[in-house]
């Protein structure tokens, strides 16, 4: 029996996540791997928006910022548990994405890119300027999630690094599973149809505006949850999380790996998260290397590293 694409992708992901810790010699590796997972979660949202629906966003870090600051602010001002704050952040992000998405998703290509970029920059500007509430550019502390202590109480002792690796890996797996499910459902088919041609999709009765909006809202929730997890793990947030560079980073991770597939995008997240760790040895040449890699991959492996390499291998086989 052949496994469907969905289950084989999930199995690959599960296997990698389960086996990887065997090769972690220190807690630093857990820390980096947990960052890979949280970035992986965020880029799955980009896969839904850009890979499935063909829409561009250069402002998704804005939603990550909302998720992150929800976890910092809600426990202080509303007395919410940090876990509930994550959910609140996701709801706020979804609501905002719904409001902002309506007008800007009528735009196409570069115009949509710039409008979303503007949204992201506005969010980061508010976070930077309203320092009475957000702590300004220095950011603020985030409360402890408390889950690790509870686990220790029932006899499951994990280091901080291990704990966050497993939490983020689990979140990424659930995110991947939901995205792959979506792809097989009517919404997923509608998104791929409008990616091909909006006019054609509308002709066969797809509500194009609604389909695009749902992709935008779903991807905003992914970004928001990823932002929340990052804040809870770091115990600190700064406005950088909502900044222009973070938005670009998300899109670059997804597109570099292969925005058409969940596995490809997660691979891209892994590459771009690990790259700075590897390149610290070259210190001042880091930016040069990163810029070169971005250009070379996009010129020579247009669909991204994973699909591009697969195509190369297949092409050689026949």
């Amino acid at each position: 029996m052949r496994l469907s694409h969905k289950y084989s992708a999930l199995l690959v992901l599960l296997a990698v996540v389960a086996v990887a810790p065997l090769f972690f010699p220190s807690s630093y590796y857990y820390r980096v791997a947990s960052l890979v997972c949280v970035n992986g979660l965020a880029v799955i949202g980009i896969v839904i928006l850009t890979g499935y629906a063909g829409q561009i966003s250069l402002g998704h870090a804005g939603f990550a910022g909302i998720g992150a600051y929800a976890c910092a602010l809600a426990p202080v001002h509303l007395g919410l548990h940090p876990g509930a704050a994550l959910v609140l952040g996701a709801l706020v992000s979804a609501g905002l994405a719904f409001l902002v998405g309506r007008p800007i998703l009528r735009l196409k290509g570069y115009y949509l890119g710039v409008a979303s970029l503007g949204f992201g920059i506005l969010v980061s500007m508010v976070l930077t300027n309203e320092s009475a509430i957000t702590g300004g550019p220095d950011g603020m502390q985030v409360a402890d999630l408390g889950l690790r202590g509870w686990l220790a109480g029932i006899g499951l002792r994990l280091t901080t690094g291990q704990f966050w690796y497993f939490v983020n890996a689990l979140a990424m797996l659930i995110g991947a599973w939901l995205a792959l499910n979506l792809n097989e459902r009517a919404t997923g088919r509608a998104l791929r149809a409008l990616h091909g041609s909006e006019t054609a999709a509308a002709t066969v009765g797809i509500d194009v505006a609604r389909a695009k909006l749902s992709a935008f809202v779903i991807s905003a929730v992914y970004a928001s949850v990823a932002g929340s997890l990052l804040a809870l793990q770091n115990r600190l947030v700064t406005p950088d999380i909502a900044g222009y560079m973070h938005s670009i980073e998300m899109v670059t991770m997804a597109v570099l790996g292969g925005v058409g597939s969940v596995l490809g995008a997660i691979f891209g997240a892994a590459v771009l998260t690990l790259l700075p760790q590897v390149l610290t040895a070259f210190d001042q040449y880091e930016q040069i290397a990163l810029g070169l890699i971005m250009m070379l991959v996009m010129i020579y492996l247009r669909q991204g590293i994973v699909p591009g390499l697969l195509a190369l291998i297949r092409g050689r086989g026949t």
Binding site: I56, V251, V259, L290, L292, I293, M294
Partner: peptide, 12 residues
């Protein structure tokens, strides 16, 4: 190349 790729090339 698609617009997203061109954006990434110029940002690169």
């Amino acid at each position: 190349a698609p617009i997203v790729s061109l954006i990434i090339i110029t940002i690169g």
